[in-house]
Design a binder for these strands. Structure first.
Length: 494
RNA sequence: GGCGGCAUAGCAAAGCGGUAAUGCAAGGGACUGCAACUCCCUGACCCCCGGUUCAAAUCCGGGUGCCGCCUCCA
């Protein structure tokens, strides 16, 4: 079996054949850095992080490029509003972006170009498009000149999004102000002349800045060449961003541009798209204040990347319980397996089946729910083995299973490290959040737990059970173990 | 108005022509003073109607419902 990928261009899942055997070049549209990222952004970058990891697992040498858009209307507006420079603003949010991505366990792409450092390439590409007759120049509003891409001169326009210009006109005409300078209202800016006070760069058309789409065309070309394998982003970029990128790039150099277009589905809330404009979004920081980063990452991988993913406390709570369960099982398995440390174990059927299942799941359009199912079966086998009285079986399943969990972990970017601290962090972060030190809630819990310990000591089980019931209603579960009566917060409503 | 996607057990989610992965929840059992944790067992014929096929959740046609894009948006 070979790798199959859903290609937006063909609307089909098709066999992946890279331009150069064994290598994959991949470009993913990065963020416009004027604000914190929300969960929708998190999904894109986690998904493509896993895709890059998966490709590497499958043996490809991957070159992953992801840009920062640091010149844009929204950036200028926000910087003006804040009374700071665009550079200060963008640098701040790039730093914040890295903090979020690091917490979520996303590897850095191989190249992370910024628009502001690629003006030479951008101007050159605009010039090439003009020279080849696919763009025209009009007078700008404040002097200088604007350059527009002429979609009527480019026959394949609409191929990616599957719509004709006529289709678009019907809906767009009532919402978009007419610009009489444009030949076709759907023509889009390649270069915009500077308005007073805006950041601007020199060009053959006077001082100005790039239009929205050209940066990705120029930067992908510079770092991956005029033709490359994978181009990714959220579904909302299909039109107009990617459609326009495709048109510009092909108009500039005739090369194939991206061969496979991958688009991830939206994160939704109550089935509606999470977006800035609707205001129904949570930033990554909002979520990480309540849930462990591994929980958010796990949750983001529970649905196939092309499908919508509905965001809710319930889903995150379920993911919490699951991640905790897996981490605890793995930690326990490691503790049990430690005594066999260094002893070799023959690969068993379980391990090789899991390896084959992992590969198959990844080759099936990076099917992370399937990978999670493989992991679940593996962890279940490990859980059974821990209980097993058969020492030989136990040893082979635990050691073999743990080593294969690592292979899966490296692809998912989950459970890569030591599982014991992860389990501890999940419980402790919930404890700190719900029962902070010196809080009335904490004192309440400690008081009841002490009373219960006392009740049990005198074998007053009726009283002990009553206290446990009370704690449970207060969101606390108590477990009587060899180490005594331990308590921890319930991870979400059950 | 145009274009596109989705509809699978209580919930979430795989499946891409050969009689439905996985997770959560729920029920039963083992364990436990009782519980919790853990382990074992239990669940759906796939929105509706037609069609193609020896065979369809999976393909085709028609409905219904939800969502997205066509304006900045991951």
């Amino acid at each position: 079996m070979t790798l199959r990928i859903t290609n937006t261009l063909t609307r089909q899942k098709q066999a992946f054949v890279p331009l150069v055997e064994g290598q994959v070049s991949m470009y993913v549209c990065g963020v416009t850095v004027y604000d914190h990222c929300h969960v929708g952004h998190a999904r894109v970058y986690v998904v493509f992080d896993v895709i890059a990891r998966a490709l590497r697992h499958l043996g490809y040498a991957v070159r992953y490029v992801r840009n920062f858009t640091d010149v844009d209307d929204k950036i200028i507006a926000r910087a003006n509003k804040n009374g700071e420079s665009c550079d200060d603003l963008t640098n701040r949010f790039i730093a914040a972006f890295y903090e979020d991505m690091d917490l979520l366990g996303c590897h850095r792409p191989d190249v992370e170009p910024r628009v502001t450092t690629h003006m030479v390439e951008i101007v050159a590409m605009v010039q090439a498009i003009v020279d080849r007759g696919h763009a025209y120049i009009v007078a700008g509003e404040f002097g200088g000149q604007d350059v527009y891409f002429a979609i009527d001169d480019f026959a394949p326009y609409g191929a990616l999004s599957g719509r004709s210009q006529d289709d678009n006109q019907a809906g767009a005409s009532d919402r978009v102000t007419r610009d009489e300078r444009k030949r076709n209202q759907a023509d889009f800016a390649l270069w915009k002349s500077a308005k007073p006070g805006e950041p601007a760069w020199d060009s053959p058309w006077g001082a100005g800045r790039p239009g929205w789409h050209i940066e990705c065309s120029a930067m992908s070309c510079k770092h991956l060449g005029p033709a490359f394998d994978l181009h990714g982003g959220g579904k909302d970029l299909i039109f107009p961003h990617h459609e326009n990128e495709l048109a510009q790039s092909k108009a500039a150099h005739d090369a194939e541009f991206a061969r496979y277009w991958l688009h991830n589905g939206f994160v939704t809330i109550d089935s509606e798209k999470m977006s800035k404009s609707l205001g129904n979004f949570f930033t990554i920081r909002d979520v990480l204040a309540r849930f462990h980063p591994a929980v958010l990452r796990y949750y983001l991988l529970t649905a196939h990347y092309t499908q919508p993913l509905n965001f809710s406390d319930k889903s995150l709570e379920e993911a919490s319980r699951r991640v905790l369960y897996i981490a605890e099982r793995l930690a326990q398995a490691q503790a049990v397996a430690a005594k066999w440390k260094g002893l070799p174990v023959a690969a068993d059927g379980l391990e090789s089946k899991a390896a084959a299942d992992l590969t198959e799941a990844l080759q099936d359009d990076f099917n992370t729910p399937k990978v999670l199912a493989v992991l679940a079966e593996l962890v279940a086998s490990i859980g059974q083995a821990i209980e097993s009285k058969d020492d030989a079986l136990k040893r082979s399943v635990l050691i073999g299973g743990l080593s294969h969990v690592q292979a899966i972990a490296q692809v998912l970017g989950l459970f890569e490290g030591d599982p014991a601290p992860l389990a501890h962090e999940i419980v402790e972060s919930a404890r700190e959040r719900l029962f902070p030190a010196d809080s009335a809630q904490l004192i309440w819990v400690q008081e009841l737990v002490q009373q219960r310990i006392a009740a049990r000591a005198t074998k007053d089980f009726a009283k002990a059970d009553e206290l446990r019931g009370e704690l449970l209603r207060g969101g606390v579960e108590v477990r009587d173990t060899r180490e005594g009566s331990l308590w921890r917060p319930l991870l979400g409503e059950v």
